[in-house]
Computed example of a mutant assay.
Amino acid sequence: MSETTLPMRVWTGSVVRTEELTPGMRRIVFGGEGLRGYASTGVGDEYLRLIFPERRKSAPRLPTVTNGCLDYDSIDLATMRTYTVRGFEPATGEVTIDFVIHDGGVAAEWAKGAEPGDLVGLNTPNGMYDAPGGLEWQFLVADCAAIPAAARLIEGAPGGLRTRAILEVPGPAHHLDLTAGPGAEVTWIYGGNGHGPSRLEQVVRSLKRPVGGVGYIWVAGETRELRGVRKYLRRELGLPSTAYKTVGYWTDGAERWRNRYEALDDATKTELMAIWESDADLGDIEIRYDEQLARLGL
């Protein structure tokens, strides 16, 4: 179940069809000749960058690939956002992305009006879910932004793997039909997602882990909400970073956050980046980084 890495490439996908899943989520399927050669890592929470055109109905300006990495010098970073791959169909080469719809934001505004023939850029996907070998049980906890990844992990879970998923949405109208196997249990809770206080940390703290057996805890949602989750898993439970994954999928007030970060002096930014160069356990590194951001008011 470990991460699979593919050579970096960039494609242009054309909207094939759209579907309204809930009042807050729209599915868009991409295909066309521009996606020829696209491949999936097979990791349930794989993600990619979508590059949107500067003007609707035009082609996006794509980054180049230099030494196996995306080179962003040729594009406006404001046109790019990161999204989960909800599905990939090898027979047709179609890539499915589920968009959380909200007011404002380059991606959400584009997705609201997307129709067949519209173009976006896509790069090679990568995944973060990396459960240990011999996995016997897992918890998946997510808010709306991370539900596409959680849904794919639920649907792809082997039959003998005990899977409990707790998914936070604004209300009952935001439920999705998920194909869960016999070993999976899905619970919907309400709150968070910019509509009220999130319950993700409360949920994680309430989880009753099985006694014995190899387990994995995957939690994804609003970036700052996960700070308390990380501290609980690493500091209070003492879990190694190989036993869990916490992923910030979005930041409440992202533009304000970015502006405040950019206003930091170069020395402070260098200190922040240096935290990641430590050889400590990844869980400790993440908490040190969170704590420093909090001290800076970020």
Score class of each variant (00 low, 15 high):
Leu122Trp: 05
Leu122Ala: 12
Leu122Gly: 00
Thr124His: 10
Thr124Ser: 12
Thr124Gly: 06
Thr124Gln: 02
Thr124Asp: 05
Asn126Ser: 10
Gly127Cys: 10
Tyr129Gly: 00
Tyr129Cys: 01
Asp130Leu: 02
Asp130Ala: 15
Pro132Ile: 14
Gly133Ser: 10
Glu136Trp: 06
Glu136Gly: 09
Trp137Asp: 03
Gln138Arg: 15
Phe139His: 15
Phe139Glu: 02
Phe139Val: 07
Leu140Gly: 06
Leu140Asn: 04
Val141Phe: 12
Ala142Ser: 12
Ala142Arg: 01
Cys144Val: 07
Cys144Phe: 01
Cys144Gly: 00
Ala145Gln: 06
Ala146Pro: 05
Ala146Gln: 05
Ala146His: 06
Ile147Asp: 00
Pro148Asp: 08
Pro148His: 13
Pro148Ala: 14
Ala149Trp: 05
Ala149Pro: 00
Ala149Tyr: 02
Ala150Ile: 15
Ala151Cys: 08
Ala151Ser: 12
Leu153Gln: 02
Leu153Asp: 00
Leu153Glu: 00
Leu153His: 03
Ile154Asp: 01
Gly156Cys: 02
Ala157Pro: 03
Ala157Asn: 04
Pro158Thr: 08
Gly159Gln: 09
Gly159His: 13
Gly160Ala: 13
Gly160Pro: 04
Leu161Trp: 05
Leu161Pro: 01
Arg162Ile: 07
Arg162Asn: 07
Arg162Thr: 13
Arg164Asn: 04
Arg164Asp: 02
Ile166Val: 15
Leu167Cys: 08
Glu168Gly: 07
Val169Phe: 13
Val169His: 07
Val169Gly: 03
Val169Ile: 15
Pro170Gln: 09
Gly171Val: 03
Gly171Glu: 01
Pro172Tyr: 14
Pro172Arg: 13
Ala173Val: 03
His175Gln: 14
His175Ile: 13
His175Met: 14
Leu176Gly: 03
Asp177His: 15
Asp177Gln: 15
